[in-house]
Design a protein around this nucleic acid. Structure first.
Lengths: 209, 209, 209, 209
DNA sequence: CTGTAATCGAGACGGTACGTCGAGTCTTGGG
DNA sequence: CCCAAGACTCGACGTACCGTCTCGATTACAG
């Protein structure tokens, strides 16, 4: 998103050291103090970097946070390449969709219940909610790969005849995960395995008798 | 939430004029400029009110916004009493759950697609996302009544045998509405009637064959 | 220059405490670190005052410095009233113009040779040199009274027949003091009593045989 | 001052093109924007030169300005040699000191009243006022030759018996030119031919009756 | 004619200060 | 006691330059 480093004739290249220091500082600060007190000044100070270095390479605080998240979540790259690790990962497949979905959603629940992850993810979520550009970036770089993974598992189930042949997998993914996200983000209730299980069961079986 | 007006023997009581001016200003500013540029200073100025008057009666910017939303959404009261209008309202009931749910969700979709409502609601959502107190308040005063309405309609369908007898209505409500909210808040895709319809159909029928 | 405090209906008046803290800090910092490292940020910090308070009441760093100089030089007032002390002061008058002028100019020389006064005065001089508004202010509020004093003494000598009847006293004052100032400001040579004495003698007697 | 080019066995020598581009840019910028907005970055940009090239050859912004002034004032050289043109120049000598002095001082007055020269000279004056090294350089390289010229003319008058035999010519030069400089630098009043004439007349005749 | 070392343009870097905005607190005078 | 007005301290914003530091790419002697 961020730099598309011009390999131009001119010169003077971006400092990889600074880039990593900034992203590390951003990630740690987000986890420690949360969105409200996350300032560019603070990130620069903690990273031992001039503010201008941040403004030079990222368009907004949210963009820094996003890249930080990207770096610590997917392998590394930050912008150009990769996320290979994500692409190669896969959701568990024991042959039992229901059980597998529960396994995965329980993990999500546990993650969101971890205070450090909660603060980081919440900060990112808030930034995404009021920055359309960042939202697009998030959808493409972080959400899409995750969604692909989920859809892949569901597609396997579909092919095994465990899910309806005409099921729209995107809708299915939303049906399963969105309630979790909303309950977490708006703190509408306790985020438990029970709730996640109920979600899976109801979504699979449908609301009708 | 907000004021628990001390009915003290002493003297001067809260100015209703100022209260309404503040909430009106907050609501309008939120709709016009969005979360990012919504400042207490701006609200006070537009309301023709001293900043202290805001700080005296509300604990945070989010609280003002919440009250503003409350005032313009439910009838009026703001804090003490009512929301009667909501309590008395009801979702349409033609006897066809699926059709009725679509009607209601189409309305939600249309609302969220209106730029003014989008900005206001987004500002409120963001405040809720990083203020647990406000989240509790929101859950109780704005979300709960709406959820009751929805559950009431679902319960009717349940009693009519159109929904499973053991269906957890809270889970059902989440299953239907959360995906809408997430897609809107994180701009994960276009918010259309088609999407809402697919949601209703899949949730009702379930994902299995 | 500075505030013309509006006694308006509204309210909220300027804090005298802050004003004095700022001027004191500015004066001391100028004396300690000199023009080059005199920053508004530094003044605010040393004064224990928000930067905005400086920007609210003074249009420039030079204006602060000027007011500081005014406060520590003339009695007090800073802007509205006074400088009475200056108005009432007088140059020595022993009846011997030459001796009296030397006395006064020796004092000036000594002052300019004091490092603290040098730094302060130099900072002020530089600000004046590149800010026409400040220059006007300086001419009116600091320079004019001093010049009046000098002219008064010269006028007495004129009336006593020691100076030419048609002598332009402004020109005379410039003739005496400007060389001192230039030599000091541009460090064109050592600033000594000898030099000052030569100035007085030559100016009085003229360059002709 | 500036480079003491090491004639090292090694290699590559200073680019004359860059040197002139820098000095030209500095001179023009000073004339256009004045001291306050004269930045090394700006000079480098306008000269099409890397910042390092400036820092490599000059110790300070003032030094660049000084060299620029030198180049555009005296013939050329910049540092090593010359100013021959100045050495060879001479003040007019009609045999009438008073008239000749007025001629020269009127020219000075006119120069200082030219906005472009005013800004340049003012910038230089300010730099000199807070940089002792630069002041020494200025005294030696720009002021001394000018002063020599003036003293030479005065010495001629002295030998012709028009000036006192024991007159200190340095004091005389200061007496005549300093008031002009102060009035200009501190904008103490209009810089006119009348004022210059009065200066000459009073200095020559003395203040006494 | 070629290697080699300094200089060149460009511009990123860690910093300091700028001048502005808004937060939340405090003070004043009027109702 | 509330209210408007607005000054206060404080902290962060995003920008401009500082002076230092790489980067290739010239460039001009020395071999």
């Amino acid at each position: 998103m961020t730099d598309q480093r011009r390999p131009s004739a001119g010169v003077a290249r971006r400092s990889e050291t600074s880039r990593r220091a900034v992203l590390t500082a951003a990630f740690e600060l987000a986890a420690e103090v949360g969105y409200a007190k996350l300032s560019i000044e603070g990130i620069a100070a903690r990273a031992g970097v001039g503010k201008q270095t941040i403004y030079r390479w990222w368009p907004s605080k949210g963009a820094v946070l996003f890249d930080a998240f990207l770096m610590f979540t997917t392998g590394e790259p930050g912008e150009g390449g990769g996320g290979e690790s994500v692409e190669e990962a896969a959701l568990p497949d024991t042959g039992d969709v229901e059980a597998d979905l529960k396994t995965v959603m329980f993990a999500t629940v546990d993650e969101l219940n971890d205070p450090r992850y909660d603060r980081t993810m919440r900060a990112l979520s808030i930034e995404i909610a009021h920055d359309a550009d960042l939202a697009a970036l998030y959808a493409e770089r972080l959400n899409r790969p995750m969604r692909e993974l989920k859809k892949r598992r569901l597609r396997a189930a579909q092919e095994a005849g465990q899910l309806a042949a005409d099921l729209d997998l995107d809708v299915a993914v939303d049906l399963l995960w969105s309630p979790l996200l909303v309950r977490w983000l708006h703190r509408e209730g306790p985020l438990t395995h029970e709730y996640a299980a109920a979600l899976v069961e109801t979504a699979l079986g449908g609301m009708r008798p």
